[in-house]
Simulated scan of single mutants.
Amino acid sequence: MTLPDDGAPASLRVEGPVVEITLNRPPANALGLPLIKALHTGLDAADALPAKVIVVSSARAGFFAAGADIKHMSSVDAASFSAYGDALRAAVERLASHQALSVAAIDGLALGGGLELAMACTLRVAGSDSRMGLPEVKLGLIPGAGGTQRLPHLVGRGPALDIMLTGRQVDAEEALRIGLIDRLVPAGDAATAARELARELCGPSSAAQRAVVRTVDAAYDRPLNEGLRFEAEQIQELFERGEASEGIRAFIEKRAPEFA
């Protein structure tokens, strides 16, 4: 089901347990307040289903999202700048912490806040003509919606500093090589590939998938011995109260599991 956009800055497409939020704010999907509100509307829809996977894509040729709304930033005082930053961070963090897995479909430019939005997703699929970057230093700023934190987690300290200190753009092949994106597809195919990945992600146990994400994330901020202990706790929890009993029974009975 596709919901009409009526000129809205984003439209929604619902296919079973998959919600696709398609950014559509001319000319370049700048993440101003209207688009931030539209992101929340899409996440509300994902909550209501509830969705297993969220896809974030773009209807704008050549752009995933060009970044924060610089025109808005140029016209506000310090208090309004702070409020705008809080609003953008709230939308990005809501996506990052959502129960559903998420996939960013990047075709074209993903810069500044646009890349921060993509990095908040669980996985990123990019077309071969995509370019990504965090150019905030060229404005006398730093990434302010999670970029300084998520980029090092994805690519490591050195590559993250290289990208942020120079403000340069990374092409899709480099992005794949350093781990900024997870799958590389032909130009223009990112949304289709992201939908296919979303359908694939709907098959396994959502409880187990969420535990995978939690456990992998723990590897970044815990010593190895604590991470291993957390891993053991997660698998025990899944065995006792998750969907492991159905998965194991289905394997023994040679049938597809029926996960929630």
Rank of each mutant, 00 (worst) to 15 (best):
R214L: 10
A187I: 14
D217A: 01
A160E: 10
E173S: 07
L141R: 13
D171H: 06
V216H: 12
G144M: 09
P186E: 12
T166D: 08
G147Y: 04
S206G: 11
L134G: 03
L151I: 01
G156T: 07
V170W: 03
R183G: 04
H153G: 12
G179Y: 05
L197G: 10
M164R: 03
G147A: 08
V213G: 06
V185K: 13
L161K: 05
G167R: 12
H153C: 06
L184H: 07
A191Q: 15
A160K: 08
S205E: 14
A191Y: 13
G188A: 07
Q149E: 15
V170Y: 13
P135Y: 04
L184F: 05
A193S: 15
L154Q: 14
A211M: 14
V170A: 05
I178G: 06
T215Q: 12
L161I: 06
G158V: 08
E136C: 07
P204W: 04
A145N: 08
K138F: 01
I142D: 12
G179R: 09
T215L: 12
L180P: 01
A193N: 10
L176Q: 05
A175P: 13
P152G: 11
G158N: 11
L184K: 03
Q209F: 06
Q149G: 09
Q149K: 15
A211G: 14
E173W: 00
L197K: 02
G158K: 01
M164T: 12
L134N: 00
L141Y: 08
G188L: 13
